[in-house]
Nucleic acid binder design. Structure first.
Lengths: 128, 128
DNA sequence: GAGACTAGTTACGTTGCAGTGACTGGGTCC
DNA sequence: GGACCCAGTCACTGCAACGTAACTAGTCTC
């Protein structure tokens, strides 16, 4: 199997500006997990690779929450070592077009938003 | 001027299921404020009408945050009584298609999500 | 002169999301 | 017999978002 093929290219860099996006899907990591699962089922540890900065506790919470909402399924394979797979449901896949719209907005407008922010903050700092 | 023409039909009812939507724009009220401004500029108190449950403090914070991000402008008319108008910028309008995609998802899938949630919670309650 | 209107501000409290760090348990590898 | 693997759990902490309640300034109306 491929070792570290990029599941999703950007967005997972700590310096990625997507953290500033005004759109949030489910909780902080929910949208990224859904994108990571777009290409097919993944295991817990496989998800941790692209989501470098996520703590196992937080990933567990995110996955449980997505499972509760019917966006993903959790399948336990009774093997050794333990093997758990997460996969998008059709309902989870239904999120993808809306997420794509949010990402498109980001590509087109995030820079403008950040510039506006700097302008606003700069004005405040200079006025003081 | 029209007195209480519905700025946006639903979404502002306290019982509205949109509160459960997995999509969040800016902060909790940001998306709704943008929608309220879609039809044209509005005053502080005019925004409070459809957003019944919002506290003035929270609305101020929301508006300041949207202004900082360059989504709205704040114009003070030096009149009496005081008169302040909020209006979408082109950048703010650029959010509308993505917001529309999120709302479309809601119309099509919110019920399925809520059903999944009830199923999940129900299973847990019965197992205990 | 009491009250209302507009557009907020201030002080304070609660809740919940997110994060850290340590730990678990069954099995395999060396 | 110690270390490692996977897929987590547990106890705790920090902090920002959200909310309530009360209050403000200047003007206008009753």
């Amino acid at each position: 199997m491929e070792k570290s093929a990029p599941l999703v290219p950007d967005m997972f860099d700590a310096a990625c500006p997507s953290a500033a996006s005004p759109f949030r899907i489910a909780d902080k990591w929910g949208g990224m997990v859904v994108l990571c699962l777009e290409a097919g089922p993944r295991r817990f540890t496989e998800l941790r690779v692209p989501l470098q900065r996520i703590a196992p506790k937080v990933l567990t919470e995110t996955l449980r929450s997505l499972e509760r909402d019917g966006f993903i399924t959790r399948t336990v394979f009774d093997e050794n070592p333990p093997h758990v797979e997460y996969e998008l449901t059709p309902l989870g896949r239904s999120l993808l077009p809306a997420i794509a719209a949010c990402r498109e907005w980001g590509f087109a407008n995030l820079d403008a938003m950040r510039a506006a922010r700097e302008r606003y903050d700069g004005d405040g700092a200079e006025a003081a």
